[in-house]
Computed example of a mutant assay.
Amino acid sequence: MRPAAEDPALRIAYSPCPNDTFVFHAWAHGHVPGAPALDVTFADIDITNGMAEHGELDLLKVSYAVLPWITDRYALLPCGGALGRGCGPLVLAREPGLDPAGRTVAVPGERSTAYLLFRLWAADEVPGGVGEVVVMPFHEIMPAVRDGKVDAGLVIHEARFTYQDFGLHCLADMGEHWECTTGLPIPLGAIVARRDLGAERLRQLADAARDSVRMAWADPEASRAYVMEHAQEMDPGVADRHIALYVNEFTAGLGDEGYAAVRALLTRAAAEGLVPPLGHDALSF
Rank of each mutant, 00 (worst) to 15 (best):
H31E: 15
P185C: 03
A9Q: 06
D72F: 00
V213G: 08
A35Y: 06
E53T: 13
G198M: 10
P33C: 03
F118D: 02
E110L: 15
R201S: 11
D44E: 14
T251K: 11
V275I: 07
M234C: 12
D151Y: 11
V107F: 07
L278I: 11
E221D: 14
E132S: 12
A93L: 06
A52T: 12
I141A: 04
I186Y: 01
H29V: 00
S212M: 06
L171M: 10
A144M: 10
G50H: 11
R214H: 14
F166D: 07
S223D: 10
Q232R: 15
L254T: 01
L76M: 10
L10H: 09
F42T: 10
G128N: 06
M142Q: 15
A199Y: 01
G237F: 08
Q232W: 13
D219V: 07
D196A: 01
E125D: 12
L10P: 10
R160H: 11
D58P: 03
G255T: 07
A252T: 13
L60A: 12
C170G: 02
N248K: 04
V126D: 02
P187W: 03
R119I: 00
Y226R: 08
A37C: 08
T181D: 01
E257Y: 04
H139D: 12
L67E: 07
I186M: 07
T162P: 04
Y246S: 02
D39G: 02
A199W: 00
V66D: 05
G273H: 10
E257L: 13
L117H: 15
A193I: 05
A239W: 11
G148M: 11
H31M: 14
M142Y: 00
I141F: 08
W69F: 03
T182R: 03
G131H: 06
D173P: 08
A199Q: 13
H242L: 00
G255H: 09
D99E: 14
Y74K: 07
N248W: 04
T48V: 08
L90G: 09
Y14I: 01
K149M: 11
L265G: 06
P137N: 03
P18I: 05
L83V: 01
V145S: 10
E6D: 14
T181L: 00
V247P: 05
E233G: 04
D58W: 09
K149G: 02
D72S: 14
L60W: 11
S212N: 10
R241I: 00
H54R: 15
A222P: 07
E221V: 04
L67V: 10
A252M: 11
V134F: 02
K61S: 13
L184G: 09
A152H: 07
M1V: 07
D46Y: 12
